[in-house]
């Protein structure tokens, strides 16, 4: 469903991604790991459409559509959703406004009508409780005054409500204690299905004990230098990144 080919991306004049190639099929969970500064967050930011990233070469297609030609909201409406490493606080905009507006925007793009109020309430009530959040979260402004763990749970809540085709989660484990991580991992695991792709970007293997990926890629200096299965993540945990870096340099 997602095809990234020979992607080169420049940020403020310096090249961060230097020919990244990645293919994700429906039903697969991919994890991208790598040392700091390898360009892990750049990939998901470019796919989501963040400003300040210049694609100098290569292509990104999603279900055959050229992602780089799509507006930011079109990408989301098409089912490409990014969970942020640092979710933005949006004072004055209640969670419930965001969830409903987002869900209806997606439905409208598919030519469907607005979701009936009772159906919507039932849906969010179910998802909020699944994420072990209180209903009062819905009344609070998006992420405003949320703890780190609450922000991450809120990102997953949005995923559960919006049911993307491809969920990209950028360092979703950063800043979480073990209990919060379990809740987040459960949320992500509940998203696993044969028609959905999941892309995890993480620095630590710890998350992958809870969300076991089908494919693990090691990103070093803007390129995927090694791919494998979940065992590769465990090997990285015990041996660190240096050996992969050396291997790739050789």
């Amino acid at each position: 469903m997602l095809e990234v080919k020979d992607l080169h991306v420049t940020v403020e004049g310096s090249e961060i991604l230097k020919g990244l190639t990645l293919s994700i099929q429906p039903g697969e969970v991919h994890a991208i790991m790598g040392p700091n500064g390898a360009g892990k967050s750049t990939l998901s930011a470019v796919i989501a459409g963040k400003d300040g990233y210049e694609v100098t070469a290569g292509t990104i297609t999603f279900e055959g559509r050229d992602v780089l030609e799509m507006e930011i909201e079109e990408r989301a409406q098409a089912g490409l959703l990014l969970g942020f490493q640092y979710p933005v606080e949006i004072p004055g905009v209640k969670n419930i406004y965001l969830l409903k507006a987002a869900l209806n925007a997606q439905r409208e793009a598919r030519g469907e009508g607005e979701i009936p109020a009772p159906e919507f309430m039932k849906l969010i009530k179910e998802k909020v409780s699944f994420m072990k959040m209180d209903n009062s979260f819905l009344q609070r402004a998006v992420n405003e005054g949320f703890s780190g763990g609450e922000k991450k749970r809120n990102e997953i809540l949005q995923m559960l409500v919006l049911q993307p085709k491809l969920a990209m989660l950028d360092e979703i484990d950063s800043g979480l204690d073990i209990d919060a991580m379990k809740v987040v991992a459960e949320g992500v695991n509940s998203l696993r299905s044969e028609d959905r792709g999941i892309l995890l970007v993480t620095h630590y293997q710890r998350l992958l004990d809870y969300i076991v990926p089908d494919h693990v890629h090691v990103l070093v200096d803007g390129r995927i230098v090694k791919s494998g299965n979940a065992d590769l993540a465990r090997e990285l945990e015990s041996r660190g990144y240096d050996w992969v870096v050396e291997e790739s340099a050789a």
Binding site: F84, V93, A101, A105
Partner: peptide, 22 residues
């Protein structure tokens, strides 16, 4: 915030309207 709302599928005008109202 405009970007964050757009990544959830809200078009730019709606995102700006919502934030202005907020």
């Amino acid at each position: 915030a405009v970007f964050a709302l757009r990544t959830r599928g809200l078009d730019e005008a709606t995102a700006r309207g919502l934030l202005t109202l907020a």
